[in-house]
């Protein structure tokens, strides 16, 4: 469990990092908190020849409220969000952080890193889709902003170009009633199923049931209708396409979806 040899680069600025990415191409990986990448490197499942460390680039670790929007820098840690006072509008972000790994992971792992890694059960990926976030990235041609739903394309696959760096995640609208819940055997594990709802949008987003964080329009429609929350869960369970896998059958994933969506809706209604 030791990584293969690599060359380490410390980027001092976003443009510096982008320049290195452009220069080194596919052989390079960006490292911030390293909570997913280093484990993969230790197993030699990932063996980048170059690591570009962005952890000390100034200005990427701030959380800024601008009008309705909340802009979260790519280097903000999960723990910083967990302990930040985001007010009622974005409380779901702080609350959801308790589901992210364990405290040591949360003190190092970053928002940008989690979204770039694009695990389909990761809380940040669900939250981004739930709240219609825009992923702000910078490349050689400058900045562009990608809607979360377009950003996540498949298992560990995103719309990020190899020479682009995530600099910020912008949450455009308040979501005072949004909630996220999930189920795993152990606290801190990747969820078997995770569910996030925002009754005001309305949005129902699931993790663990597809290759990307999955919006469930059928359930959103039921949620919008304002009927019993159990029906939202039922609609979500009926809408997903899951298969039997070791550790969880399709039937079980469906049942968890029903339960968790219902519970997330119940929690939202109390707000």
């Amino acid at each position: 469990m030791k990584p293969a040899a690599f060359t380490y680069h410390r980027a001092r600025s976003v443009s510096g990092a982008v320049g290195l990415l452009a220069e080194l191409g596919d052989d390079a990986k960006v490292i911030a908190g390293g909570q997913s990448l280093v484990a993969m490197m230790n197993f030699r499942l990932a063996r980048p020849e170059h690591l570009i460390d962005i952890a000390r680039i100034p200005g990427l670790d701030t959380i800024v409220r601008e009008g309705d929007a909340l802009r979260v820098g790519a280097l903000v840690t999960h723990h910083a969000v967990e302990t930040a006072d985001l007010g009622p509008d974005f409380r779901v972000l702080s609350e959801a952080m308790r589901w992210v790994g364990h405290l040591p992971i949360r003190t190092r792992g970053t928002v940008g890193g989690s979204i770039a890694h694009a695990d389909a059960t990761a809380e940040w990926c669900l939250l981004a889709v739930l709240l219609d976030a825009r992923i702000v990235v910078e490349g050689p041609a400058g900045r562009r902003s990608i809607p979360a739903e377009e950003f996540f394309q498949g298992v560990f696959t995103t719309a990020l170009e190899p020479d682009e760096l995530i600099v910020e995640v912008e949450f455009p609208r308040p979501a005072p009633r949004a909630t996220l819940t999930e189920f795993a055997e152990r606290q801190g594990d990747f969820a078997i199923v995770a569910a996030a709802v925002d009754p005001d949008a309305p949005r129902v987003v699931l993790g663990g049931v597809a290759q990307v964080p999955l919006r469930v329009p059928a359930a959103e429609a039921v949620l919008a209708a304002g009927v019993a929350v159990a029906e939202v869960g039922e609609a979500a369970a009926a809408a997903i396409d899951v298969r039997d896998e070791p550790g969880a059958s399709a039937h079980y994933r469906r049942a968890l979806t029903r339960t968790l969506v219902t519970r997330a809706c119940e929690e939202a209604r109390t707000r």
Binding site: E185, R186, Q187
Partner: peptide
């Protein structure tokens, strides 16, 4: 990750 040692939470 796969070998599920319980933690203080469990």
């Amino acid at each position: 990750m796969e070998y599920k040692v319980p933690t203080a939470a469990e």
